[in-house]
């Protein structure tokens, strides 16, 4: 492993993030506050409690997941798409590093940024609601796994995308609906039975459920199923990355 080179890619990617630190920091704080105002105060005042947790607190795990997933995908995809777009990818390809080292550098940076934002949102939440986290270690582990696997997913999108439209396509058409329908703002048990069954096909349900369990000790699906879901998703992404590495698809013609 060429760790110094991985470190170079990682810090190069992080530099862009630090250059715009205020934006990176402010935008999640503002958007989270808005969510709390709209969902927590306006709607939440009519919902009261979900399974013994105040609605304001109930949506915190979903809000964090929403941002971690979208940020991981957008950072992961943009990170590798940009060198493809500007042509600087020649440098990565002609350096004495292999594809996995490139992946670790880019995905590591994308996941780090997503986690940073997840933590900022968590911090902001404390300003709005009373929150105690029952399993902090599990909470962190879930967040890290989610950040890493969706950054990987984003990386694959970034390799696949031939233009900016395609870069936006998958997040917009597939991921955002999955997240919103994944129980970010409600419990699956609130849905009619038919839609409950449909919802169980949505992988994001398992992530948010597991994450919520780490906070409040309650879940829509068994925690083991949540762990399995995230592990399976990560395995699939790794498999695709491995295949890209083997074939040089859309990188080494």
């Amino acid at each position: 492993m060429n760790w110094p080179a991985i470190g170079s890619i990682y810090s190069h990617e992080m530099m862009r993030f630090f250059r715009t630190l205020m934006q990176s920091f402010l935008s999640p704080v503002i958007s989270t506050s808005l969510y709390f105002v709209v969902f927590g105060a306006a709607i939440g005042s009519r919902i009261d409690e979900v399974e013994g947790v105040s609605y304001g607190a109930f949506i915190v795990p979903g809000l964090i997941m929403l941002s971690v997933i979208t940020q991981a995908i957008s950072n992961g995809s943009f990170g590798i798409f940009f060198p493809k777009f500007t042509g600087t990818i020649y440098e990565l390809l002609s350096a004495p590093i292999n594809f996995f080292e490139i992946v670790i550098g880019f995905v590591g940076a994308a996941a780090t940024k997503a986690l940073f934002i997840g933590i900022v949102i968590l911090g902001t939440s404390f300003l709005f609601v009373d929150l105690t986290i029952q399993h902090p270690a599990a909470m962190m582990a879930f967040m890290v796994m989610t950040g890493v696997s969706f950054a990987l997913f984003g990386f694959i999108i970034g390799i696949w995308a031939k233009n900016f439209e395609q870069l936006q396509l998958v997040p917009l058409l597939i991921v955002t609906p999955l997240i919103f329908l994944g129980g970010s703002f409600y419990s699956i048990s609130m849905l009619p039975p038919f839609w409950q069954t449909i919802a169980l096909l949505n992988p994001v349900v398992y992530l948010i459920s597991g994450f919520r369990w780490a906070f409040f000790g309650m879940a829509d699906v068994p925690i083991a199923a949540s762990l399995l879901a995230i592990a399976a998703f990560m395995a699939i992404c790794l498999g695709v990355v491995w295949w890209i590495f083997r074939t040089g698809w859309r990188i080494r013609s």
Binding site: N2, P4, A5, G7, I9, T88, A95
Partner: peptide, 19 residues
Amino acid sequence: LEPFAKVRSTVEFSRGLFG
């Protein structure tokens, strides 16, 4: 070239890529 990168830092990055 990356349009927003600074001259020195982009050259340093190239060195870093070689470990």
